[in-house]
Amino acid sequence: MPRLALSNVEVVYDKVFLAIKGVSLEVEEGDIVALLGANGAGKSTTLKAISGLLGPERGAVTRGEIAFGDLDLLSLGPPKRVEAGLVHVLEGRRIFGHLTPEENLLAAFPSGRSSARFTELRERVYTYFPRLKERGRAKAGYLSGGEQQMLAIGRALMTEPRLIMLDEPSLGLSPLLVQEIFAIIREINEREGVSVLLVEQNANAALEIVRHAYLVENGQIVMDGSAEVLKQNPDVQEFYLGGGGKVDYHAVKHYRRRKRWLA
């Protein structure tokens, strides 16, 4: 059984706008999967449908099923989904800027657990992100963009997740920092056995660490396959990986026809 499975999911905003249309995907236990696509393609909406965060944006899942192991996620509120082992690291970090890194970690730690367990999980986070320990007395709002992203991921680990969803972790970071953070994501996946669903516009970086990827356009999955297969696809190379030389924009319409056929 897949750790996460979406089947023909549709999301509507304001009871009018159809944002994602019949999305189906799977993340196997211990796997690392990417959801790729341009800005506005429906990637973040897909993650919010899974984590239950559509409500504040006047969105709702109107069709389809979302299963997390043997759980029906659509019957659970966001807190219960976190308790089940699903955690969502939102785009833009969303750390508590007025708190220190350790206070941010404590804020994410489930209430009612022992202080010894908090210490153990905190030290595990510091093992992956030693820079957070070095900046322990600083307010999180004064951390660099890369350090804030590390803190956002570390805070997610405090919930002891079975699956982490990461929304644009490379956003606003230098190529070297992107490489560092993606290497740590892969290490967490391998060492902890935590499944990862990674949303990214930076297809080059994502395809270096994932095993499988889905490509989203206009709210639909138009292609999926192993990372190696997608990297070799000439359409993906031309429009997402920066290859293929100068883009012939007159061919874009034909390109989309080919993708619908491939899907």
Rank of each mutant, 00 (worst) to 15 (best):
residue 192 E to P: 03
residue 212 H to N: 07
residue 74 L to E: 06
residue 108 A to M: 05
residue 50 I to M: 07
residue 235 D to W: 12
residue 1 M to P: 14
residue 262 L to W: 14
residue 25 L to C: 02
residue 57 E to H: 11
residue 81 R to F: 08
residue 212 H to V: 14
residue 194 V to A: 03
residue 29 E to P: 05
residue 21 K to N: 07
residue 246 K to I: 15
residue 71 L to H: 13
residue 255 Y to E: 10
residue 179 Q to R: 15
residue 44 S to W: 02
residue 204 N to K: 14
residue 118 F to L: 06
residue 224 D to N: 13
residue 69 G to E: 02
residue 187 E to W: 08
residue 163 L to F: 10
residue 188 I to E: 01
residue 72 D to R: 12
residue 2 P to V: 10
residue 158 M to R: 00
residue 189 N to Q: 01
residue 128 Y to Q: 06
residue 145 G to Y: 05
residue 226 S to R: 15
residue 43 K to E: 07
residue 75 S to H: 13
residue 250 H to W: 15
residue 11 V to P: 02
residue 170 S to D: 09
residue 210 V to R: 02
residue 119 T to S: 15
residue 97 G to V: 10
residue 43 K to D: 11
residue 81 R to L: 03
residue 101 P to F: 04
residue 9 V to P: 00
residue 209 I to Q: 12
residue 165 M to H: 15
residue 81 R to H: 02
residue 238 E to S: 13
residue 257 R to Y: 09
residue 79 P to D: 03
residue 121 L to Q: 11
residue 167 D to E: 12
residue 128 Y to R: 02
residue 76 L to V: 09
residue 119 T to D: 15
residue 215 L to F: 13
residue 250 H to C: 14
residue 238 E to Y: 10
residue 230 L to M: 03
residue 238 E to H: 08
residue 210 V to D: 04
residue 99 L to R: 04
residue 243 G to D: 09
residue 244 G to M: 10
residue 226 S to G: 13
residue 159 T to D: 06
residue 110 P to Q: 11
residue 150 M to P: 04
residue 87 V to F: 11
residue 75 S to L: 14
residue 227 A to H: 01
residue 248 D to T: 13
residue 143 L to Q: 02
residue 174 S to K: 13
residue 14 D to C: 09
residue 64 G to Q: 09
residue 189 N to H: 07
residue 67 A to M: 14
residue 92 G to C: 04
residue 93 R to V: 03
residue 86 L to N: 04
residue 34 A to K: 04
residue 75 S to A: 14
residue 88 H to W: 08
residue 187 E to Q: 12
residue 261 W to H: 15
residue 59 G to K: 00
residue 124 R to G: 13
residue 165 M to C: 10
residue 215 L to W: 05
residue 100 T to A: 01
residue 45 T to K: 05
residue 168 E to M: 13
residue 74 L to R: 02
residue 176 L to A: 14
residue 141 G to L: 06
residue 120 E to S: 15
residue 142 Y to L: 15
residue 179 Q to F: 10
residue 89 V to Y: 01
residue 11 V to F: 03
residue 136 G to F: 07
residue 213 A to W: 04
residue 147 E to K: 05
residue 246 K to E: 15
residue 176 L to D: 15
residue 121 L to R: 11
residue 122 R to W: 01
residue 63 R to W: 13
residue 62 T to D: 08
residue 108 A to D: 01
residue 72 D to I: 06
residue 159 T to R: 11
residue 149 Q to M: 05
residue 12 V to W: 06
residue 124 R to I: 13
residue 251 A to K: 12
residue 105 L to I: 02
residue 196 V to F: 04
residue 133 K to N: 11
residue 56 P to C: 09
residue 93 R to F: 10
residue 25 L to W: 03
residue 225 G to Q: 11
residue 94 R to T: 08
residue 80 K to C: 11
residue 44 S to H: 00
residue 173 L to P: 01
residue 108 A to K: 01
residue 159 T to V: 08
residue 18 L to A: 06
residue 185 I to C: 12
residue 56 P to S: 07
residue 30 G to M: 11
residue 120 E to M: 10
residue 113 R to Y: 12
residue 208 E to F: 09
residue 67 A to V: 14
residue 193 G to D: 04
residue 259 K to R: 15
residue 168 E to K: 12
residue 198 L to W: 01
residue 188 I to W: 07
residue 14 D to E: 09
residue 142 Y to P: 05
